[in-house]
Lab assay of single mutants.
Amino acid sequence: MAAAAAAGAGPEMVRGQVFDVGPRYTNLSYIGEGAYGMVCSAYDNVNKVRVAIKKISPFEHQTYCQRTLREIKILLRFRHENIIGINDIIRAPTIEQMKDVYIVQDLMETDLYKLLKTQHLSNDHICYFLYQILRGLKYIHSANVLHRDLKPSNLLLNTTCDLKICDFGLARVADPDHDHTGFLTEYVATRWYRAPEIMLNSKGYTKSIDIWSVGCILAEMLSNRPIFPGKHYLDQLNHILGILGSPSQEDLNCIINLKARNYLLSLPHKNKVPWNRLFPNADSKALDLLDKMLTFNPHKRIEVEQALAHPYLEQYYDPSDEPIAEAPFKFDMELDDLPKEKLKELIFEETARFQPGYRS
């Protein structure tokens, strides 16, 4: 834990890192770190609560700039109880001085990944967590956004079992017609939660990839272990087919990539493993919904509104309290091709509203 900075004593240090967030945020305490930044909790002297502050230093890398800009653009436009918001952003007053960006968010005690390492969940908890994931996802999908990296560590939890989806750095506007060349190379989302079509096709992607990830998360809540822990690309596919069985001819016809289709045709026939054999203690309604989410063919996979209306979630289902976005989200430009200098300018502009004396 960093010592509390005395008023006016300059930035606090946390594990050798400068955290320049005073005077409003003090009493910093280390939480963890990701690929390009550290997260601390801090005391907000204005709202009198502890908050989470993520320090991001992305400006050396085009990919990190892209992810940072995506996350900020999306989260500043989203407003939903099951999606983490941005409360404040701290950065230098000029673009030349801006080396880091500090993002202030609600402090959540833990995440689903940490929880599943230590606790076996009751059916009631599984049901409530799944409902909140789908409630947040309904809003995301209504904005025409794909999260693309749903996994237990991106689901934040607090002691009252509130759940918030975080990390929109890989999110995209849904565009089933656009052929994202190089899709697989830039697709760094965790393999275990990846839909089979991501490994088999490169053309376009749809909201059904997020539903697949939610199915993987439900299976993990039922058993405290990942359902498809593939060691590499082909191993991942083999794990999936080992449980779902061989795809039907109709399902194979959806695979545009001939090499991928021929690979699947070359494999020995596998039978589907019954879900109640894998999860003998699970609620039968939970397994019915799991089956509809972990469907090989993305066109037959359940959609988020149908999933919310499934009998497993009937005690929570309330369409009048499951809000959607006001308007579909649009990125003005494809960020993939922009140089990091341009992305830095866009991050600077996007964060201006939090600067003292800002006038829109």
Rank of each mutant, 00 (worst) to 15 (best):
E33Y: 01
N271I: 15
Y316W: 01
P93R: 06
F348T: 10
A307N: 00
I227Y: 03
F78W: 08
Y358F: 14
N82A: 10
I89Q: 02
N276R: 08
S248K: 05
I256S: 08
A2N: 00
I140Y: 05
I56W: 13
I83E: 00
K340T: 03
G245Q: 12
G242F: 05
M333K: 15
F59C: 11
P196Q: 12
Y233Q: 06
L184M: 15
D251F: 01
V188M: 10
V46T: 01
W192Q: 12
R277D: 12
A286Q: 03
I74Q: 08
L218D: 10
D332P: 00
A189H: 04
V46L: 11
S122N: 13
R148D: 10
H310I: 05
Q236D: 07
C216I: 05
E326H: 01
E220A: 12
G22H: 07
A282E: 03
G169C: 15
L116Y: 09
T94V: 12
Q17V: 10
M333Y: 08
Y131C: 05
L264N: 02
K151I: 02
S284D: 06
A92W: 00
Y263A: 04
C65M: 06
S360K: 14
I53D: 01
F59Y: 14
S320L: 10
L218F: 14
T63A: 08
I243R: 03
A52D: 14
I227S: 10
G215T: 08
K73P: 12
P226V: 06
T185N: 12
R135N: 00
L241W: 08
G169T: 00
F183G: 10
K300R: 14
E220P: 09
Q17M: 06
I209Q: 13
L76D: 01
E314I: 00
H61S: 02
I84N: 15
T295L: 06
L107D: 12
C65F: 14
E96N: 02
E12D: 15
K300P: 05
I255S: 09
P93L: 11
K270G: 09
T63P: 13
L343G: 10
A3Y: 10
Q17H: 15
P319A: 07
D100F: 02
A7S: 13
D177A: 15
A219C: 12
E12F: 00
N262T: 02
S208L: 10
P298G: 03
V39F: 11
H61C: 03
L130H: 05
I95R: 05
G34A: 09
E305R: 08
D162M: 01
I31V: 01
L163G: 01
S41Y: 15
F129D: 05
D283Y: 15
T94L: 12
A42G: 02
T94M: 11
E33N: 00
N253R: 11
G230V: 14
K270S: 04
L115Q: 15
R191F: 02
V46Q: 05
Y312G: 07
A352N: 08
I89S: 02
P356T: 10
I243E: 02
I72S: 11
M199V: 01
